[in-house]
Design a protein around this nucleic acid. Structure first.
Lengths: 344, 344
DNA sequence: CTGAAAGCGCTTACAG
DNA sequence: CTGAAAGCGCTTACAG
């Protein structure tokens, strides 16, 4: 029924060992032999048995992926990256949705008991000190977080520089001529909330623009919270000429709110977001935002984790890097210079 | 290093065979023996080696998943369903993005060559007759489509009844008192486009409302196309009092366009969508829409495919069912009775 | 550059 | 209800 390496070997007149070598692209095979094997492979429609390879090479591993209440856009980009990398590394992914503490701790303990080699954790669980400590204490398991940078050794991380990204975006808004800029914060349980706000603040400071408390309003990264926050900001006297929402969902909500007040974007109001999820290019006008390379970050996270698990298996000390990928300012149609001079 | 069934067996004073029985939940094990084994398992932190199980039982399989240019919301829901079901069935998923013909044909041929046992195909590839024929002719591979119903034997399918769903939604709009209802079509390469339109049309007919060509405008399921279509509809004299967009993306665009014209939703215009992706509850007001149980459909599709592959392996003829899941009308905040009587 | 032997960690099929 | 034997389809480690 199933074609095996032995079948191929027989047809090619070699040993199964040589077939294995050809399949694994080893160089120590005579060219003519390789060709004969490849011909037999094609003729028989042979493809190696994954399970047998995994078992024999003892190379495969299992990783738990904790994801929590994400936006679809973030999740699908992440999943695509994770799955591609996982396949390439012969690793199984165990998807588990989980909330914050204490749920996350329980889930992680269960995962460890079930024998996973590592876990990949997303915010906000990745930003929770209790979770981080739990991960660090469990020497039997490797961990990687994705999202905001942290510097624990023992836990790898892949992130962008939220601070610099927010600062760059704020500078861009300032360069357009805005002086009265509203800011919508993310949820308190996310570290990104602090870093992005700090970047915003420092950009203003460096430009010599005074901070005004009323211009910084609470949000929690949800569309709904963005609606409320934008409403607050647009009712300020004078209203801001630009609003920097710290993620795309809240930026989209800001655009919608502006439209309800018959304020045009970007003519009457500049709106900028963060993340560059699919929402950014779905709404009208398309959002100027900060691009986070989510799929690439996910791939890098899996790669790092696999590397560390294999290092540990080989008896080495895992390196546990902290990778920082580049962000990009995506300038689109939601920003413009202020049309009216604001008296300050 | 790794704890094996033999280790457990030794500690429990039984044979590895018995450990295997306990793990697989076989009933023919004395209760006291089972307990001893379970105690040893817990004590040693044993978890069975997946690869070894797959190899020995020859039960695992590989499925290619063709997805094409979907919305993030649709994709993430689908992926979550697929992955959960795949893990439970010991099957590997090979994700491949692919466009329409001839790209899709090439991808499928490659997948077959690479030795997958089956493929799961999403629209619009799942609606392409060339693809369907290719799948049907390849007796070596099992296939399942998801989305719109088709009735090929040899290819399983999981779907909702697009026709009845669109009809139900249209009836709902009519019941609210609307008589002049705009409709935005999907892309021509999707079968769902035909079925949904037919449902819309028949509901009008049954209510004795005359069809007017100008009220049915082209779209392609993208937000952008929805913007244009809504613009056309809202400039009609008289304008429709309700618009049924055949997916959520275009419905969201319709809401945005209405807002630009300072038309309130639902007071000045009823807007209904289709799919119930996350967009539906993300925008304001939340959309009244048709819920498609995407994750459940995906799970069912994988389950069906696995069943068919195993049947074929066992020498039986695969059953190749056509499953139809229930849709649900999700009434939310974007619909209302018309406030102004329309002269016809 | 190539092969014979042993083994990866399970399960199937057969005994008892 | 339990076990000894053989084997799943590869790869590793060792020879030559």
């Amino acid at each position: 029924m199933q074609v095996t390496a032995s079948d191929v070997a027989r047809m090619a007149g070699v040993s199964p060992m040589t077939v294995s070598r050809v399949i694994n692209g080893e160089t120590s095979v005579r060219e003519s032999t390789r060709e004969a094997v490849n011909r037999a492979i094609r003729k028989l429609g042979y493809s190696p048995n994954k399970a047998a390879r995994s078992l024999a090479s003892a190379n495969s591993l299992q990783i738990g992926l904790l994801y929590a209440n994400p936006s679809s856009a973030y999740l699908s980009a992440m999943l695509l990256g994770v799955l591609e990398q996982a396949r390439q590394n012969d690793t199984q992914i165990l998807l588990v949705e989980c909330g914050a503490e204490p749920d996350a701790s329980k889930v992680i303990r269960g995962l460890i008991r079930s024998g996973v080699d590592g876990v990949m954790v997303t915010p906000p669980a990745a930003d929770d000190p209790v979770i981080l400590r739990l991960l660090k204490r469990n020497r039997g398991i490797q961990a990687v977080t994705i999202g905001t940078k942290h510097e624990d050794d023992g836990i790898a991380s892949v992130s962008i520089d939220d601070y610099e990204a927010a600062k760059a975006m704020t500078r861009h808004i300032i360069d357009l001529g805005h002086r009265r800029i509203g800011y919508i914060k993310g949820g308190a349980e996310h570290w990104s909330t602090c870093w992005r706000l700090a970047g915003f603040r420092d950009a203003l400071l460096e430009a010599g623009i005074e901070l005004e408390d009323e211009l910084i309003v609470a949000g929690d990264y949800s569309y709904r919270s963005g609606l409320r926050a934008a409403d607050t900001l647009l009712n300020l006297k004078p209203a801001p000429t630009a609003i920097f929402a710290s993620n795309d969902d809240m930026a989209a909500a800001t655009v919608a709110t502006a439209h309800r007040y018959s304020i045009g974007v970007p003519k009457g109001l500049t709106v900028c977001g963060f993340d560059d999820t699919f929402l950014a290019t779905t709404i009208w006008p398309e959002l100027t935002t900060v691009r986070q390379p989510i799929a690439d970050m996910s791939k890098a996270a899996i790669e790092l984790l696999v590397k560390n698990v294999r290092a540990k298996r080989a008896g080495l000390t895992p390196a546990c890097d902290h990778l920082e990928l580049k962000f990009h300012l995506m300038r689109r149609q939601s920003d413009a210079s202020p049309s009216v001079k604001i008296r300050r």
